[in-house]
Nucleic acid binder design. Structure first.
Length: 469
RNA sequence: GGAGAGGUGGCCGAGUGGUCGAAGGCGCUCCCCUGCUAAGGGAGUAUACCUUAACGGGUAUCGAGGGUUCGAAUCCCUUCCUCUCCGCCA
């Protein structure tokens, strides 16, 4: 969410930031709504002031028994009430339009972010390791997993459809080992506090991190709509309306509204990333600045509807509706977030280094930046079967963008005014894709898979996964 | 899921239609007095927004939203959360 005052102060700068992202200028429309809003607020408040004054006078007139004055003031107040109502309505309209507009505008890129239209213009920052060379033809992870008899897409499809998988035996354990290894690394060596958050969250939480309102189609939602309580709701609403006016038009409108409200309020969403749960831990909080940087790590499943990605990565475990991920979140003071971003990226890289998986780091250009991010580094791991690097982690500095949306603040020692925190998130790293990378980079010609040394302790000392005979 | 109780300022806690942004206490800040294992007196002490060059002025907020009323912390409705008992349950 953007600071309306910042837009007022520098509309050109705001539009320039949007243009770097390939978006149309919006400041003129925003400021026009802002003007309307403030005019209505002022007019309403003036009417309220007059109303408050008159109300006090009414009490006095009544006490003094001055009926004429009493009646005159009542008429005055009822006129003022009309002003208050019409200006209040104008305020609500303008506020609603302004909020809707602002809620849908992405974060502005940081100064240093390279300009570019799409991912083809991302900038490679560094490369670690050599792409794995195999002296035989590389199989993809599906062939390897199915060859081992430990990866079953068909069974998953029968119960859940496409983009799900069943892992068995050593592969199921390998997934567990990867998650445990990553979580241990981030918590014991990098100072992130292990956190076990909810996987189901309210819409407000998703608004806070920026998935809502624009990206609802990417989310899985639950629906707790309850017909029985809905029926009793209708009856209550009917009672309320009937007693008041008996107007059917109002009645149907209220019913619809109450129905929508009931449906919306019962609804929880499955998290598309633990970023949502972890970042929202500080929502509506005022933190002590001694708490910084606040570092949290969680291993959770992530659920993504993958709407609009039909036909992409349909084979294998690259793009699933459900996958496990170790997520890192840092909450910092504004002046710390850039350094913390570099550090967080290094914490994610360390996972791949210890697993000895070749990777590179790219900085996303302005056109490829996510909604809430002002700057992002992606980690891409080498996949022999695709002869290319594929994303396995994404580390973003969101500045105060999410903090504003969830009202997460802190107070500096000795200061009175709270300020918005900065939030950062990064995968440290995606467990499902790490499993793919291990299988492909550690595959042997005979179809077995060597287990990276760092994982062997987590595999009960197992050194190699071989086909169950 | 059923029955009941409750959500007031940094904290505790009063307040059932007007003089309540809210008594009192605690805490905190400043000042005064005193001088000794301390205490006493006084003043101040919420947030957001609008407005103003500034001082200041105004509006809203007593979990949230809506309603009744000239006027609501106080009455009504909805909703969120907390607690107690019962039921169910990994």
């Amino acid at each position: 969410m953007h600071d309306i005052r910042a837009i007022r102060n520098d509309p050109e700068g705001f539009d320039a930031g949007l243009r770097r992202r390939g978006l149309e200028p919006q400041s003129a429309e925003i400021l026009a709504l802002d003007e309307k809003l403030r005019a209505a607020v002022t007019a309403k408040q003036e009417a309220e002031t007059a109303r408050n004054t008159a109300s006090k006078a009414i009490g006095k007139a009544k006490a003094a028994g001055d009926e004429a004055e009493f009646e005159r003031l009542r008429a005055e107040v009822s006129r003022l009430k009309e002003v208050m109502e019409s200006q209040g309505a104008a305020e609500d309209t303008a506020k609603g339009q302004l909020d809707a507009l602002l809620a849908g505008i992405p974060n502005l890129p940081a100064e240093s972010v390279p300009d570019g239209a799409d991912e083809s213009e991302n900038v490679e920052k560094r490369v670690w390791g050599e792409p794995t060379k195999l002296d035989f033809e590389a199989k993809d992870h599906v062939a390897i997993g199915e060859g081992l008899g430990l990866m079953d897409f068909e069974a998953a499809a029968k119960m859940s459809g496409a983009r799900f998988v069943v892992l068995k035996g050593a592969l199921a354990r390998l997934e567990r080992a990867l998650g445990a290894f990553m979580l241990d690394l981030q918590t014991t060596e990098h100072g992130y506090q292990e956190t076990a958050p909810p996987f189901l969250v309210r819409d407000a939480a998703l608004f806070g991190t920026g998935q809502l309102p624009k990206f609802e189609e990417d989310l899985f939602g639950t629906d707790h709509f309850d017909r029985v309580s809905f029926k009793s709701d209708i009856e209550k609403v009917y009672e309320q309306i009937y007693n008041r006016s008996g107007d059917l038009h109002w009645f149907s409108e209220m019913v619809i509204e109450s129905q929508l409200r009931a449906a919306r309020q019962g609804k929880l969403f499955l998290i598309p990333t633990a970023e949502v749960s972890l970042t929202n831990i500080v929502r509506e909080e005022i933190l002590d600045d001694g708490a910084f940087p606040l570092r949290m790590a969680a291993q959770t499943p992530s659920f993504r509807a993958e709407a609009g990605s039909a036909g992409r990565d349909t084979r294998g475990m690259i793009r699933m509706h459900q996958f496990i991920k170790v997520e890192l979140v840092s909450i910092t003071a504004p002046e710390q977030s850039e350094d913390e971003h570099e550090r967080m990226t290094a914490c994610a890289e360390e996972v791949l280094k210890r697993l000895e998986l070749p990777y590179r780091v790219v900085e996303l250009c302005t056109g490829d930046l996510g909604f809430a991010a002002r700057k992002t580094y992606d980690l891409e791991v080498w996949l022999p079967s695709q002869d290319t690097y594929r994303e396995i982690s994404s580390c973003s500095n969101c500045g105060d963008f999410q903090a504003r949306r969830m009202n997460a603040r802190f107070r500096r020692a000795g200061e009175k005014k709270p300020e918005f925190v900065h939030t950062l998130n990064g995968s440290g790293v995606a467990v499902g894709r790490a499993l793919v990378a291990v299988l492909e980079n550690y595959q042997n010609e005979d179809g077995s898979v060597t287990i990276p040394a760092a994982l062997q302790p987590y595999m009960g000392g197992m050194e190699k996964i071989e086909a169950a005979s």
